[in-house]
Computed example of a mutant assay.
Amino acid sequence: MSELVTGEAVALELRPARLPSRALAVLLDLVVAVAVYIAVTIGLVAATASLDEAAQIAVSIASFILVLVGAPIAVETLSQGRSLGKMACGLRVVRDDGGPIRFRHALVRGAIGVIEILLTFGVVACVASLVSARGRRLGDVFAGTLVVRERVPTARGGFVPPPPPWLAGRFSGLDLSAVPDGLWLAVRQYLTRMQQLDPQVSWRMAERLAADLAARTGAPAPQGVPPAAYLAAVLQERQAREARRAFGNGPAAHGPVRNGAVAPPAGAGGWPQPAQASGPYGPPTAQPNSAQPNSEQRSVEQPAAPAPIEEPSAQRPGTGFVPPA
C-alpha cells in the first residue's frame, strides 16, 4: 500500500501495480498496436505503390511513429491513463499526487517508452520497475506518474461479535477522543479473528490491546471483565457515538433503554460482574459478590407511565391502593 498526498494535503492509500500485471498490460497493448500497424502498413503499401522508394520509406516511418507512439499517447490522454491493456488488467496511470494525467505526462511516458520498451525489448523497463520501490519505470519517473491498481480484491468483512448484554452501555462516560484510528483498526481486526487464534495467544493479545485502550482513555478495564469483552464493549460505544453524530442524538445518548425507561450509565466503581460470561469472550477472572447487589440490580426500572389510581368506591375500601383484579 502506497500513501500519496494530494495538493489539498489529503493522504490517499493506493496499491502500486507490480511488474507482472504491468508487463501483461504492456504486452496486450503491443499486440493491439502491432496488429493495427500491420493493417495500416498493408493499406499504405497498396496506396503508395506508385510512389518512389524515398516516399514509401517516409510514409512507413510516419505510420510507425503515429501508430506505435502517437496512438498510445492519445489513448492514455483521452482515457486519463487507461489503455486497452491497463483496462483489461485493472490498472491506471495517475500523477504522483493521485490526480489524472494530462497530455504532457502521456507524452513523456510514450517518448521514453520507445527507448526502454520498444528498442530494448522491455529490458530497461523491467530493471527499473524491479529497482523502484513503487514499481515505476523510467517514463514514470521523468513524467511524475505512477501506475496503480484500480480493481483491488475486497476481502469479506469479518463479523465483530457484540459485547455481553451486561456490558451494554456501561462505557458511555469514557473519553474516546485520544484513541488513534490505528488502535481502533487493531481492535476491530482482533475481534473479527480471535476465534481463529490459539486461546492463550488470543488472551494475551486482548490484554495488550485492552491495556493500550485503557491508557488512551484514562480508565482501566473493570475488575472481572474479560479483556476481549471490554474491547467489544468500548468498540460498540464508539460505533454508537458515530451513529448518533450521523443521525442525531436520541435516547441512547443517556444510556441503554430497557422497557421504555432509560437506565443511567454506571459510575466508575459500579461495573457489573456476571456469574459467568457468555459468547466467545471466555470466563471472567473474578466472580461477583452475591451478598452485595451490583449496579444493574440497584437500578430500578421504572415503567413508561404510572398506572392510574382508581378512586375508592362503596364496594372498595378507601385505602388508596388498588386491589388486584
Rank of each mutant, 00 (worst) to 15 (best):
A261F: 04
L84R: 10
S50N: 10
S60P: 00
G269M: 11
G110P: 02
S21D: 09
L107T: 10
D97E: 07
R208V: 12
G279K: 03
L19A: 11
T145I: 02
F103L: 10
Q236E: 09
A219H: 11
P264R: 11
A71E: 05
S299T: 14
V147M: 09
V45D: 15
A71H: 08
A275H: 13
G320S: 10
R170I: 02
D198K: 04
R102M: 00
S299W: 14
L30P: 11
I38N: 07
L51H: 13
R170W: 03
G90K: 12
R298N: 06
G110N: 10
E311S: 08
A71D: 04
S50F: 07
L27S: 08
P226V: 11
D96E: 13
A47M: 07
N289D: 15
A54G: 13
P256S: 05
P265V: 08
P162A: 02
L78K: 00
F142L: 15
R149F: 07
P293L: 01
R82W: 11
E242W: 02
R95T: 12
I115P: 05
V179G: 00
R204A: 15
V262I: 05
V10H: 13
V179F: 02
R104E: 14
L119G: 06
G248Q: 03
V114K: 08
A314I: 00
A62K: 05
N294K: 02
G70L: 07
L176P: 05
L183Q: 00
R15K: 07
G110T: 10
L84W: 14
R102W: 12
A286Y: 11
P323A: 08
G173F: 05
A35R: 00
A286L: 15
A325K: 04
L4I: 12
P180F: 00
A74D: 03
I61N: 11
A228I: 01
L27M: 06
A39S: 02
A219C: 09
A314P: 06
Q223D: 15
P164C: 10
F64S: 14
V300I: 13
R102Q: 12
R238W: 06
E116C: 10
V234T: 06
Q196R: 14
P312A: 08
R258K: 10
Q223M: 15
M205G: 12
E207R: 10
V141W: 13
A17M: 09
R316H: 09
V10I: 15
A58V: 03
A206S: 06
G135W: 00
S295R: 11
I42Q: 14
A252D: 06
P280G: 13
G158V: 09
G70V: 03
A168P: 08
G157W: 09
S202D: 01
P323Q: 01
K86W: 04
E296C: 01
G43M: 13
T319M: 04
L78I: 00
L107V: 07
R95I: 03
L19M: 01
A133H: 14
S172T: 07
V124T: 03
A178T: 08
V26E: 12
G158R: 03
P312I: 04
F142E: 11
V5H: 07
G224S: 12
L197S: 05
Q236H: 11
G279N: 03
N259P: 03
G173E: 12
A88L: 09
I115D: 06
L91K: 05
G270Q: 13
P227N: 06
